[in-house]
Amino acid sequence: MTENKLPAFEGPVCPLPMRHDDQIVMGHGSGGRMTQELIARVFAPAFSNPILAQSNDFASFPLPADAALKGRISLSTDSHIVSPLFFSGGDIGRLAVCGTVNDVSMAGALPLYLTAGFIIEEGLPVETLERVTASMRAAAQEAGVQIVAGDTKVVERGKADGLFINTAGIGWIPDGREIGGELARPGDAVIISGALGDHGIAVLSARGELGFDADVRSDVAPLNKLIQNLLAAAPHVHVLRDPTRGGLATTLNEIAQQSQVCIEIREQDVPVHAAVRAACDMLGFDPLYVANEGKLIVIVPAEEAQAALDAMHRTQYGEEAVRIGQVKADPAARVLMKTLIGGTRILDVLAGEMLPRIC
């Protein structure tokens, strides 16, 4: 297993250009001429910026002017595996950027910089790597962040399922902003930014495992601009969380446990697109537990709920936002759902793995 740091863009480049159908071989991770050629062809065009061009084994970067005097840092890291690498609405590259941007943003932070580490399997077509890095560049531009440091490793054929990506993100939290899963309070409103389950069903459909065609696109998206607009309208938001693996039900349980409150939602208000509901019905899945990659849970004081909804509706990725429930004092650390037939269902955390390798 060999490696090379992405900032080293200035080394010599092989005079014979790589053919468009070339594949990754172990020599691309050697740190020598083949590695330099791969960096120059794939990573430098996708991620080049003044910070990365410092060509060090670290990134040195400025924080916003306000951050020099006040505020805190938000830091998150995530590893991304998905099969197939490309699916309707996204790919592993967009997933890697958006996932980390969103995790940093859940503190109410302004995301600034990312790192990216690539574990590449021998035999991966270089064209595939180019498509992934181009998608990462586009997602980073959409989110307004820069990829400022990175690393590559090449592993033997059969040991990486094509490509794995690790990303880390750093952002700035303005002074006085306190948002966290432990801050939900009785009386708060619970809002979801849109329909559930699109990502999980889109990935499963791309594998050809549904047995039928599902017209579903993944919701993978950067949510930081939605969040900043939301916080401008509703500055006292208590909790932000993206319901990724384990879906809405598992994520609400995490919040209920952290805050020691009861979260009660209404089944009739939980949005699910018709194609996703049909797929779940046929496969025996519950959309409340299917993964999402571009949805946001907002827990906010009831008096700011309408302002929050109005702001979300005016922002991309928040047009379908809806209030789905409320926070109560008891029973503590529980999530309940008022069903369509008037009963009450206990929603527990996901047991096992409903849809493997989707994020």
Rank of each mutant, 00 (worst) to 15 (best):
K5T: 15
K5A: 14
P7C: 09
R19P: 12
D22I: 03
G29T: 01
G31T: 11
R41F: 02
F43R: 02
N49W: 04
P50V: 03
I51P: 00
L52T: 02
N56Y: 15
D57M: 02
F58H: 12
S60Y: 09
F61I: 04
F61T: 01
P62T: 04
P62M: 04
D66A: 14
D66W: 04
A67G: 00
L69F: 13
L69D: 12
G71E: 09
D78E: 13
D91Y: 07
G93K: 01
R94A: 07
C98P: 01
V101L: 07
G108W: 00
A109F: 12
L110I: 10
P111Y: 04
P111E: 02
L112I: 09
E127H: 12
S135G: 11
S135Q: 03
S135F: 08
A139I: 01
E142T: 12
E142I: 05
I147L: 06
A149R: 06
A149N: 15
D151C: 04
V154H: 00
G158E: 00
G158T: 00
A160P: 14
D161L: 11
D161Q: 10
G162P: 06
F164D: 05
I165P: 01
I165S: 04
I165T: 08
N166Y: 10
T167V: 08
G171F: 04
W172S: 02
R177E: 06
G181F: 10
L183V: 03
P186M: 01
D188H: 05
D188T: 03
I191N: 06
S193D: 10
G194Q: 13
G200H: 01
A206T: 12
L210H: 09
V216K: 11
R217P: 11
V220W: 01
P222F: 01
P222L: 08
I227F: 09
N229W: 02
N229P: 14
L230V: 11
A232G: 14
V237F: 06
V237A: 08
V239S: 04
R245G: 06
A249W: 06
T250L: 05
T251R: 11
T251C: 14
T251H: 14
L252N: 00
I255E: 08
I255G: 07
I255K: 05
V261L: 00
I263F: 02
I263D: 03
E264I: 12
E267H: 09
D269A: 15
H273S: 08
H273I: 10
A274C: 07
A275T: 09
R277K: 07
C280M: 08
C280A: 15
D281M: 15
G284E: 10
A291T: 15
I299L: 14
V300I: 14
V300Q: 03
E303L: 13
A305Q: 14
Q306F: 12
A307C: 09
A307H: 10
A311W: 11
M312Y: 03
R314N: 09
R314K: 15
E319R: 12
E319H: 07
A321T: 13
A321I: 07
G325E: 04
P331Y: 10
A332V: 13
A333K: 13
R334C: 14
M337F: 05
M337A: 07
T339F: 03
T344C: 02
D348Q: 13
L350W: 11
L355D: 12
P356A: 08
R357P: 11
